[in-house]
Simulated scan of single mutants.
Amino acid sequence: MRIKAETSTLLIIDIQARLFPVIQDSAALAENALWLQQVAQRIGVPVLLTEQYSKGLGQTIPSLRDGHPASAIIEKLHFSAVSEGELFKRAGGERAQFVVCGSEAHVCVLQTVLDLLAEGRQVFVVAEAVGSRQASDKALALARMQQAGASIVSREMVAFEWLEQAGNPLFREVSKTFIR
Rank of each mutant, 00 (worst) to 15 (best):
V82E: 05
D66L: 11
I43E: 11
L87P: 08
L87W: 04
G58L: 14
L64V: 07
A81K: 08
S63Y: 04
K76P: 05
G85F: 02
S54W: 01
L49M: 13
G85T: 00
L77V: 15
A72M: 03
S71T: 04
P62V: 00
T50M: 07
Q38I: 07
E86N: 08
L36A: 02
I43K: 05
G44D: 06
G56E: 11
T60R: 10
S71A: 06
E86G: 07
G56S: 06
A40S: 11
G58T: 02
G67Y: 00
L36D: 09
P46Q: 06
T50D: 14
A70F: 03
L36T: 12
E86V: 06
Q41G: 13
L48F: 03
S83G: 14
L49V: 10
Q37W: 11
R65E: 04
S71L: 09
H78N: 12
E84A: 08
R65F: 00
G85I: 02
A40E: 06
E51P: 03
Q52M: 06
L64S: 11
P62N: 05
E51V: 00
Q59E: 14
G58S: 12
Q38G: 08
G85E: 02
P46K: 00
A40W: 02
H78V: 13
L77N: 15
V82G: 02
V39L: 00
L36I: 13
V47Y: 10
Q52C: 03
G67L: 09
H68D: 04
G44K: 01
V47K: 13
K76Q: 07
L36E: 11
G44T: 14
H68N: 14
L49S: 07
H78T: 14
T60A: 09
Y53F: 15
I73Y: 06
I61G: 11
Q52G: 01
I61H: 12
L49R: 08
L49Q: 12
G67I: 13
T60Y: 10
G58M: 09
S54E: 12
H68F: 09
G67W: 06
I43H: 04
H78W: 05
T60L: 09
L77I: 15
G58F: 01
A70C: 03
L49K: 15
S80V: 03
K76Y: 06
Q41Y: 08
G67N: 10
Q37F: 05
A72F: 02
E84L: 09
Q59V: 15
G44W: 06
G44N: 03
L48R: 11
I43G: 03
L36C: 05
S54M: 07
A72Q: 11
A40P: 04
S63K: 14
I73K: 04
S63D: 13
L87F: 01
A81P: 04
R42G: 11
K76V: 01
P62D: 03
L49D: 14
A70D: 12
H68W: 05
I74E: 10
Q37E: 09
I73V: 13
Q38V: 04
P69S: 13
R65G: 07
R42D: 15
Q41S: 12
T60H: 10
Q52K: 06
L57I: 11
S54T: 15
K55S: 09
H78A: 14
H68K: 07
A70M: 08
Q38T: 08
E75C: 08
I73C: 12
A70K: 01
A72Y: 00
A81C: 15
L77T: 15
G67A: 14
G44H: 10
H68C: 13
A81V: 04
P62W: 02
G56D: 09
